[in-house]
């Protein structure tokens, strides 16, 4: 990726000096990216076929300067920094990932968000000829996700373009993906080709597939179980066969930073 890595220490990681990142091998060989297959090792095996150069992101909707922005254009405007975040999957496993990327807010401010915008919609690339998994209708394709505008503008929310200072691998969502560390992993949509500012709550793929199990917000919350499993604890991957389960933290450990976004909301109803 273009751009150097700024040596800034983000707010969230200062309180988390104890976070020990997973290895490159772990992070890049255990992925959920159903467009390349439902197995955890399918993406690493199949994602090689994805063309990521050239790459264009269409930014449209309620923005001042809508258009098709090339990946290089975007990177020339953004400051890349490293963020070590917890990553909690809705399946109750977790990792720690040293991402490189930029704040989504910087990108949105660059294109100019109009005052009527309240939500941000995202879309993953859909290329059946390069993505063997989309032949099966596990989900409706293309994969889509959404955030409330204040969530999208939050300084913790980033677009990742790298891991461990290297370009982000295709199986992890190259060339750029969303990372929202206080939400379940599936919110962090991969290989983004479209960002749309909207007035209404945008659709989200897992929510469409099963609204009872996957809400729009999908904030990490140990008190609200998935209907089919508990979210109170998680398996931190990389600890071997006998690793002990760990308690899951409210908002995945980012409660101090993000809890105020949901003041007055019943998190059981808006799960």
């Amino acid at each position: 990726a273009a751009g150097g890595i700024a040596a800034s220490v983000p707010l969230a990681s200062r309180a988390q000096d104890a976070l020990e990142p997973n290895t490159w091998e772990e992070i890049t060989n255990y992925c959920n990216y159903y467009e390349f297959g439902t197995g955890k090792d399918d993406p690493a095996r199949n994602a090689g076929a994805l063309t990521i150069d050239p790459w264009t992101v269409r930014i449209d909707g309620l923005v001042d300067r809508p258009g098709d922005y090339s990946f290089a254009d975007i990177m020339s405007q953004m400051t890349i920094e490293e963020r070590i975040y917890r990553f909690r999957c809705v399946e109750a496993w977790s990792m720690v990932v040293p991402w490189n990327g930029f704040e989504l807010a910087d990108l949105l401010n660059w294109v100019g968000v109009q005052s009527s915008a309240r939500y941000v919609a995202f879309e993953t690339v859909l290329r059946p000829e390069e993505m063997p998994g989309v032949a099966s209708r596990v989900l409706e394709w293309p994969y889509v996700e959404g955030l409330r505008l204040d969530e999208a503008m939050h300084p913790l929310t980033m677009m990742a373009t790298g891991i461990y200072g290297r370009d982000i691998p295709k199986q992890n969502g190259a060339p750029l993906r969303l990372v929202v560390p206080w939400k379940y992993g599936f919110k962090s949509i991969k290989s983004v080709v479209r960002i749309t500012l909207t007035e209404d709550e945008p659709p989200a793929s897992w929510n469409i597939a099963n609204p009872r199990e996957y809400g729009f917000y999908s904030n990490v919350n140990p008190q609200v179980d998935h209907p089919r499993w508990s979210q109170a604890t998680e398996r931190r991957l990389g600890g071997g066969l006998f690793a002990k389960r760990q308690p899951t933290l409210m908002f995945n450990g980012y409660e101090a930073e993000v809890a105020s976004l949901y003041d007055g909301m019943d998190l059981r109803e808006f799960f």
Partner: peptide, 9 residues
């Protein structure tokens, strides 16, 4: 069996 051996087993 990868990094989530308990689940895989």
């Amino acid at each position: 069996l990868g990094i989530d051996p308990a689940k895989r087993i």
